[in-house]
Amino acid sequence: MPTNKVKHIAFAKLPDLEIIQKIKEEGARELLEILYDRYATKVYYKCLGILTDKDTAKDLAHDVMVKVFLNIAKFRGTSLFSTWVYSITYNQCMDHLRKKKRIPYSPLDTEVFQYLSTEEIELENKILQDLKLTQLEVLLERLKPDDKMILLMRYQDDFSTKQIARVLKISESAVKMRLKRSRDKLAHQLNEMQDEK
């Protein structure tokens, strides 16, 4: 068996942090491959989920993985490696969307919330309580990329408000506002979906 293959098998079960430490010490390519195998699929599907175009998702996943590997020496281990990788992923998607002008720099449309009554909010909360996985897959396709992204960051990857704020380059209070807006949109879409049946 080739030495590289043996090394790959031997290190495959090590936690991320130990692999990164070894990469910093030895700079071995086969160790990068272990990290690639762990994260590339998730990164690709995150990009695909946000952008819905396979070629763009592939290009962005490529850029994310290259960026991760080129900057791996800078990873200090103060957060989970997965959080670091996904924050680079979301950042790359944000940059792409901004370049395509699908996410304008305009301030939040906060006035929308001023007209939402307490009853409406309660109703939307009730709707979200019964959300099912099969419905969520369809609903995410109907949401705008920036709404999808913030919901994925919070509920799939457990990003804190502070972490989301850093990725999106907005304030923490703006994150809370946007999260609420995206949740409301999700509830609204779910309500419409149930009405369609």
């Binding site: 699929t41 599907y45 989920g49 996985l133 969520l136 897959e137 919901l151 509920y155 799939q156």
Partner: peptide, 17 residues
């Protein structure tokens, strides 16, 4: 909790290209 459970259930259906 429900949102987290549903979002975490969204797994990649296939490998990356």
């Amino acid at each position: 909790q429900n949102l987290e459970a549903q979002f975490k259930g969204l797994l990649p259906s296939d490998d990356a290209p």
